[in-house]
Design a protein around this nucleic acid. Sequence first.
DNA 1: AAGTGGTCTAGACCACCAC
DNA 2: TGGTGGTCTAGACCACTTT
Lengths: 245, 245
Amino acid sequence: MRSTKTNVPLYQQLAETLKQLMASGNIGAKEPMPAERELAITYQVSRDTVRKAIRLLEEQGLLYSDHGRGTFAAPESVRQMSRFLDSFTDDTIKRGGVPGQTILSMETVVANMAIASLLHMQPDEPLLRIKRVRLMNNKPIGLQESFLRLPEGAQLTQKELEQVGSLYRILIDKFGIKPSESLESVGAVAAQAEDVALLGVTLGAPLLLCERVMLSDRREPVEYCEMKYVPPYRYKTRISKGSAG
Amino acid sequence: MRSTKTNVPLYQQLAETLKQLMASGNIGAKEPMPAERELAITYQVSRDTVRKAIRLLEEQGLLYSDHGRGTFAAPESVRQMSRFLDSFTDDTIKRGGVPGQTILSMETVVANMAIASLLHMQPDEPLLRIKRVRLMNNKPIGLQESFLRLPEGAQLTQKELEQVGSLYRILIDKFGIKPSESLESVGAVAAQAEDVALLGVTLGAPLLLCERVMLSDRREPVEYCEMKYVPPYRYKTRISKGSAG
DNA sequence: AAGTGGTCTAGACCACCAC
DNA sequence: TGGTGGTCTAGACCACTTT
C-alpha cells in the first residue's frame, strides 16, 4: 500500500484503492465491503487508516457504515449528490453538460450598505462586480452577479476570466484565496425585465434565486453572489443525519 | 472529564464541555481555542478524543481548524447554518418561529409509475399520502405532499400525527425507521389554482419547489415529499470544501 | 458466540505556519 | 525554532447485529 515518494496521505491513497475495488464491479449497491480489520491486513495499514479512508468515501456518498452490520456500497442515487463546494464549471460537468459563460460586465464599484455589511467591509471600499450569463450546452440557464472583495491592488482582466473559465480557479491559483465554506440561501422570485431579455423567459416567470456568501480559509467573506436560474435547472444536494443527534 | 455511568461517548461529552467553554464568553468569533494537546491534558483524555470532539463541532459549524495555525471559534453567520437533516418542526424552531400544520388529507393510495420508481416499489403497492399546509407563526408558508412507504400493516391515524406534530418523530419512535440521508432537488415553479387557494398567493406567483427522497439507515427509500413554499421562505444551507479536493 | 463497526489510549513523526 | 494541527501505528475494550 505505502507509496514511496508522494505526499498524499495514506488514507487518501487507500480511498482511491477502495474506489477501484468497488468499480472493478465486484461490489454492487448495498453490498458489503470487506471488514475493516480485513482491509487493514490486506493493504498493510492500521485499522485507523482504513477507517479514515472509509469516512472519506462516506462523505463523498460512496459508502455507508452500520454499527454491528458492516460497511456497504451506497446506492447509485446517493453517489451523484455532492455535499461540497463546487464551482459552476465543475458542477455543470458533473451534471453531464458543457459549461460556458458570457461576461456582460466587469467593473470596480463601491459597496452599498447591504453588501458592505455582508462582506464585513466599509461602505466605500472598492469591489469587483462581475455580471455573467451562465451557459449549459450553449443555452443560457442562469444570470449571475458576483461582488468580489479582492486583495489590495489585485488585478483581474476580462480576458483572463474568459480564458480560465472558472472564477474560483483564479481565486485559488492567482490570489491564494482558498474558498472553504459558503452560506447559501435559496428562494423563488419572478422574472424582471432584465431576466426576460437575457434568459429568454416571460415576464413574471418563476426563477430560482440562489444567494451565496463565500468565506476563505480565514473565514473572511470574499464573495457575495446572486444567481437566477431558469426552471429546468435545479439545485441538488444530499443531506445526512450527522454523527450525534 | 470521564463520567461514570453514562453511555454517551467521551468525545461527545467533551464536545459539550467545549461548547460551554466557548459560550462562557471567553472565546469570541475567530479567536483561538486552546491547543489540542493542552485540551487533552486539561480534560484528561487522549489527543485523539479531543480531535474527535473538535471534528464534531466543526461539522456543526462551531469551530474550524487550520493546519499549523490552530483551532478557532466560527463566526456567528456560520453557526446558524445546519448541514444536517432537520424536520420542518425543528427547522422552524431554529429559525425562531412557531411551527404548525393543518392536515388536509391522509389516505392510502397506490403508487403511480413515477413515484413507484423513486421509492423502489411495485406500481400497485399501497402508500400513505399525507397532504399538509405548513404554518409558521400561524401563517401558511408551505404546501406539502408526502408519500410514505410504511412497514406491512403499519397504522397511523390523523389524530396521532396532529398530537406528535412531527412525522419524523413518529417514524423513529413508532416504526423504528431511522432517517439517515435525504436527496433533495430544489427549483422554482409557478403557483397553480390549488396553491392560490391554500397559500393565499396569486396565480402564477413564483414558489420554491423542494423535492426530497428520504432514505432509512438501510438505504431503503421511505418517503417522497414535495413542498411548495411561499417566497419569504428560504432554503438555507452551509457547504464546506471537503477533506480531499 | 462470533463478527462487525465505534471508542479510546499513548506515543511517534510529518507538514505547515508564525516569529 | 517552536508551536500548531495532520497522519499513522498497535492494541484494547465496548456496543450492536446476526446466527
